[in-house]
Design a protein around this nucleic acid. Structure first.
Lengths: 164, 164
DNA sequence: TTTTAATCTAATTAT
DNA sequence: ATAATTAGATTAAT
């Protein structure tokens, strides 16, 4: 077989990428129009009607449409990376010092931890989101606690009013 | 040299990442407390502020902190990738067929075009944003055109009213 | 179920 | 003009 594609997530390549690269990538430069029955609506219909990410049960991928995040032929999402404890320890230690590592630090970490640079990038993005979430929740608890104390204070004052 | 760090954008590492990885990453696991003067009062800044990038009105960043996207020691952003015409041609051809390439297609393209997979991912994100932008603008023009035609029609009708 | 890696949008920054 | 980064929301794997 010419194509050594690995079907990792159970999705089968319907159209070979070589078809696109070989035919469209080269012929299209010469103004050659290809017959692409699935592309008749390419620029029009799919503004964002289909964007909001439902369609879990893929209808057969012929026809429509390869223009939504969920029904994408040829490969699903990247398999979840399982960081080791020591990798997380290092990342957390760096995060203590720098929450926005630049490209050089990310590359350095990637080399040091044997990870891809963009895994580092994603890790820091998710780590910042986690921090913001925890800060929001702790602020919320502060407010709730303050309100609760206010309530107690009001009840105390009412008690005093009654006793007076 | 032990360190093969490439100063791509003219940024110099001030604190070696090895300090963090070597000291914090290993000793911290044994409960060893480190003296980290920059964690309190960062005596660093002279080197940080001549970084290549921003800091338009940077107030003295002593004290705090490396926790903002702009004052990040050790590296700025990734240098802008300059895609070749033929790379863009292929990416555009694929985009015609699939606006949401999964991991397999992205990896395939990365290998084929000699790019990192993450550059492919980013390219498609930006390309979708461009498409949405252009669709929004074209819809806006449609509405504007419709309004203009309505205006003309109204004027015609008024003309008829006057002539009658 | 909970946590978090991965993906997406939208806005922005910066080359 | 567009590559890179961010926050934020969501999806999905563990």
């Amino acid at each position: 077989m010419a194509s050594a594609v690995v079907p990792a997530a159970g999705n089968l390549p319907v159209f070979s990428i070589e078809r696109i690269l070989g035919l469209e990538g080269k012929l299209a430069e010469r103004g050659v129009k290809l017959h692409r029955p699935w592309d008749q609506t390419a620029e029009v219909q799919s503004d964002e009607e289909n964007k909001s990410c439902q369609q879990r049960h893929d209808q057969h991928p012929s026809r429509l449409s390869f223009h939504s995040p969920t029904s994408s032929w040829y490969g699903g999402r990247r398999p979840r990376t399982a960081f080791t404890d020591s990798q997380v320890n290092v990342l957390e230690a760096v995060f203590q010092v720098n929450r926005y590592p630049g490209i050089q630090l990310r590359e350095h970490l990637a080399g040091r931890l044997d990870l891809d640079e963009d895994r580092i990038q994603i890790w820091f993005q998710n780590r910042r989101a986690k921090l913001r979430r925890s800060l929001r929740e702790s602020r919320l608890r502060m407010v709730q606690s303050a309100v609760a104390h206010l309530g107690m204070k009001v009840r105390e004052d009412l008690q005093v009013d009654v006793e007076e």
